[in-house]
Computed example of a mutant assay.
Amino acid sequence: MIGRAADRDRLSRLLDDVRDGRSQALIVHGEAGVGKTTLLEYLLQQAADCQQVRVQAVESEVELAYAALHQLCTPMLPVLEQLPDPQRAAPQLAASADDPAPPPDRRRRTPRRSRADRPRG
């Protein structure tokens, strides 16, 4: 990885934080062919001692609510009992295929009826 020393250093610091118990998030973006996959492969090699979960977005899943989140949470279901109740609920819901409700941002909003519109009786 020629010319990527600054990126590698940034990734190393991120891993140091993770190993010290501090949560981290990483967003890798850029034009096609700039080396995003190479950077992620480098990170995964450096993080061989860490639990890793991969998610790959696919355009055909764009209409499936939370498809990537489902992919992320499903492998973790066996260890959820180790989490406190509030933190356990979110991954369980995300991994559940039984919930037919659309996500909150796709629900139809029904206008509230005013008192004048309500039936009397």
Rank of each mutant, 00 (worst) to 15 (best):
A32K: 04
Q46S: 12
S23M: 07
Q56K: 10
H29D: 02
P84S: 11
L43V: 15
Y42N: 04
A95K: 00
Q51A: 11
A57S: 14
M76R: 00
P84G: 05
L80H: 01
G35D: 14
D85P: 13
A90M: 08
Q92V: 11
L77R: 07
Q45D: 14
A95D: 09
Q87P: 00
Q92L: 15
Q52A: 06
L69N: 05
L69H: 06
V58T: 05
Q71I: 01
A32D: 01
A65V: 03
C50M: 11
A89R: 10
D98H: 10
E81F: 15
P91A: 04
P84R: 13
E61C: 03
P91I: 00
P84F: 08
L69E: 06
D98W: 03
S96T: 12
E63V: 07
L64H: 02
V34P: 03
Q82I: 05
G35N: 10
L40Q: 01
E31L: 09
A32R: 12
Q71F: 05
Q52T: 14
G30R: 02
G35Y: 03
H70E: 08
H70V: 02
Q87A: 13
A57D: 01
S23D: 09
E61P: 00
S96W: 06
P75Y: 15
P91F: 08
P78R: 10
R54T: 13
L77K: 00
V79E: 14
L69W: 03
E81W: 14
Q45R: 15
I27R: 05
H70G: 01
T38I: 12
E59N: 09
Q56M: 02
V62A: 11
Y66G: 03
E61M: 01
I27S: 01
Y66Q: 11
D98N: 10
A47F: 05
A25E: 09
L83M: 12
A32F: 07
Q92G: 10
A97E: 12
V53N: 06
G35M: 10
Q24C: 13
L93S: 09
A32T: 11
L39C: 08
A48K: 12
Q92P: 03
